[in-house]
Computed example of a mutant assay.
Amino acid sequence: MLTQRKADFIMIVAVLFWGLSYVLTRYGLFDLPVFNFMAIRMGLGFLIAALLCIKTFSKINKETIFAGAVIGLFLFLTLTGTNYGLLRTSISNTVFLVSLTAVFVPVFSTIVYRKLPEKKILIGTAGAAVGILLLTLTGISGFGIGDILCILAAAAYAIHILLSKKFVSSKKIDALNLGIVQLGFAALYAGICTFLFEEPVIPQDQTVWFAIFFLAIFSIAFGCVAQIVVQKYTSASHIGLIFALEPIFGAIFAFIVYGEILLPLQIIGAAFVFFSVIWIELNVNDLKKIKMKKKAV
């Protein structure tokens, strides 16, 4: 069984891959229409995850299928907003704005459950919000449709996180199967939109195929499934705040690959986000116990 800290660490690794995914997605979108690209990467991610977990996946039930159809829709909406946003704004702007999920989760959670998160979460969220504000306001020149789509994507993913937490709390739903099924439905929705709004295309470039397989394995099969599984062992607020690390990872990869440079205020904003997540993960009581033991020795 996972501890909360181990679950949070797995989420941090997943967010690292999601940060890298923006760079690779930009490659894919050079050659493929948005829905076409999404359908292929999500479809491959679904097949890979299902085959690797075939014993568990063969025991899927109707409750899990229904839940997968619901959260798969919000995953699809998140990727749609993110991918179209990438075509209309910079990688740095995209990851900064999509990371507003970290702010939306506690806000939506408070509205739905009519209960404020614990004080530590509120402080961390406020710090992350300040950081994202600095990252965003200094990184956007002319607020456009791409930026709006990214914010809508952040809201959709916040809803996805909250719904996932609710579904995995049910004894009838297996978290691993739910994580896999959502990928299949997201691929299905993207496939339908491909045939309705685009002309289906098979990638010809080897670089695009590399991007697709990397995204399918690490960003989709591992990242998206891991997020669902670990939510049994950590809170939605923790997941949302760890997600705030994504702009830092994304900005680093954007700098390495495309030479996008952070401004001084953006670096300060990144520091706010980073230390806000550290604050959430830091257990003050454990530190006090360690200090007391050292004094006793």
Rank of each mutant, 00 (worst) to 15 (best):
V95R: 06
L134W: 01
T94G: 01
F57L: 10
F74T: 06
I65Y: 00
L162P: 13
G68H: 06
N83Y: 07
Y84D: 12
P106Y: 00
K62Y: 13
V130L: 14
L152H: 10
L162E: 14
V70L: 08
R114V: 13
L97W: 03
I111A: 07
L122E: 05
A129H: 12
G139C: 00
S99Q: 08
G85Q: 01
R88T: 07
K115D: 14
I60E: 10
L135Q: 03
S92D: 15
E63L: 06
L122K: 02
T89D: 05
N61D: 09
A156T: 09
A156L: 09
V130G: 06
A50V: 13
Y84V: 05
A155N: 13
L135E: 03
A67M: 12
V98L: 13
V107T: 12
A156C: 13
I65R: 02
K120E: 15
T56I: 07
I60W: 08
G72W: 01
T89N: 04
G45F: 02
I140M: 05
D147W: 05
T94I: 03
L116C: 09
K119Y: 15
F104R: 02
T78I: 03
L51C: 04
F76T: 04
A49I: 09
A102V: 06
I123T: 00
L152G: 15
G124P: 08
T89C: 10
G131H: 03
I148P: 15
G45L: 08
L149M: 14
F76W: 06
K62V: 12
G146K: 09
G131A: 02
T64I: 00
F66C: 06
S90I: 09
I48Y: 08
T101D: 11
V107P: 13
A156K: 03
A126F: 12
S90F: 03
N61V: 05
F143R: 07
L97Y: 02
F46R: 00
P117T: 01
S141Y: 13
V98N: 11
G124R: 01
V105F: 09
N61R: 10
T101N: 11
I65S: 06
V103S: 09
V112S: 10
V130S: 05
I148L: 15
F96V: 10
A128K: 00
A50K: 11
C150S: 14
L100W: 07
A153P: 10
V107L: 15
L79P: 10
Y157E: 14
K120Y: 06
K115L: 12
A50L: 15
E118Q: 10
V98E: 14
E118P: 15
T125F: 00
L51Q: 00
G139F: 03
G131K: 03
A129D: 14
A153K: 09
A126Y: 02
N61K: 07
C150I: 05
F76K: 04
K120F: 07
I91L: 04
V130Y: 04
A50Y: 11
R114I: 11
C53R: 10
C53G: 08
L133D: 04
R114E: 14
L152M: 15
V103G: 08
I60A: 14
G146P: 12
L86Y: 01
G142V: 08
R88K: 13
K55T: 08
E63I: 04
A153R: 02
L73P: 05
C150M: 09
G124F: 01
T78L: 11
G45W: 02
V98M: 12
T136M: 01
G68E: 12
V103Q: 08
E118R: 11
L52R: 04
